[in-house]
Simulated assay, not measured.
Amino acid sequence: MAETASTNADMKARALSGAGEELWLRAERQSGGVGRLGRKWESPEGNLYCSTLVVCRNADPAPASLSFVAALAVHKAISAHLPHDDICLKWPNDILVSGMKTCGILLERSGDAVVVGIGVNIAVAPQVEGRTVTSLHQEGVDPQVDAGLFLETLAPLFADMLNEWRQSGLAAILAAWQDYAHPAGTRLVTTDEKGRRIEGEYAGLFDDGALRLRMADGTLIAIHAGDVQVG
């Protein structure tokens, strides 16, 4: 479609109407795109704005862990087109290229389904307060790779990772995610639920996907939600 308020909102409506998996919606522009924590998601033409649907099954891992599935799929899609290897996953669901944000992922529940929204800076790197951002074209991806072509790469990779999540379980997904994350010992900064600053070193993930942060005294703490900055 040319323009919509939000592909996630459109997909949530389809989910409530009984839509199944493997459906993708893509818009050239969004007038009301939303990122994590309710932030506005800038949606200039030329980038990828898309959503898909996962229908929850009783035996599935925790639905929130689909953020790792999506991040892995995007990482693989970018790697298929980008001629360098400085592509890194940052908890909980960022993909950094040359150390700069290039993707946003937002999960939203709709009845028995989870809507997975994905935005990737293909041609344009919009200004985002407090973030350094880049686009795939700026990083060296062939200018002929547009949002539609990138989605053709992404969709089957997402299906593969979704199947891995269901067949092999969350542990396999988390192990794969950590293979592409920043190195152990990377300095990270976040805040707790009271807004207090927390600094530590990346020490992998806990079994449920929580961030494992090593404090200065060597103790390990779990971060379950929040923004994380490399620093």
Rank of each mutant, 00 (worst) to 15 (best):
Y202C: 07
G104W: 09
S67T: 15
L174R: 01
T153E: 15
A70S: 07
G35S: 14
V145R: 09
I173N: 03
D217C: 09
V97M: 10
P143M: 05
G20Y: 00
A176T: 08
L205T: 02
L213A: 00
R109V: 15
A172T: 14
A181D: 05
K194Y: 13
T52C: 15
S51W: 13
C103R: 00
V124L: 10
A147S: 08
L37S: 09
L220F: 15
P61S: 06
A70E: 09
G18Q: 01
L107G: 11
G46N: 03
W177A: 07
A71M: 06
D146G: 14
L213Q: 04
A172Y: 07
R197C: 07
A27T: 02
L213I: 03
E139F: 00
P156K: 06
P61C: 10
I105C: 10
Y180C: 13
A70G: 03
V133W: 06
D227R: 00
V116W: 05
R36M: 08
G185P: 00
D208Y: 02
W24I: 08
N163Q: 13
Q144I: 06
M11A: 06
D94E: 11
E45C: 06
A184W: 12
G231D: 12
G38F: 06
S110P: 02
E22M: 13
E28R: 03
H84E: 11
D85I: 02
W91H: 00
H137M: 09
Q167S: 14
M100F: 08
E193Y: 10
N58D: 15
D207L: 03
G35M: 14
R109W: 09
G33A: 10
F150T: 14
G209L: 03
T4C: 15
E193G: 05
F150C: 09
A5S: 14
E21D: 12
W91P: 01
A73R: 08
I223W: 03
R57V: 12
N163S: 14
S43Y: 12
S67V: 12
V133N: 08
L23G: 00
K101H: 03
A19R: 01
E108K: 05
K76N: 13
C56K: 04
Q138H: 13
L136N: 04
F206M: 06
V133P: 13
H137L: 08
L170F: 05
C88K: 12
R196D: 11
T191R: 06
E129Q: 11
I87M: 07
D160N: 02
D86P: 00
K40E: 15
R214G: 05
M100Y: 04
L205Q: 02
I118V: 15
V145T: 13
L16D: 06
P92E: 04
L106W: 11
C103Y: 01
L154H: 08
Q229T: 10
T4M: 13
I118F: 05
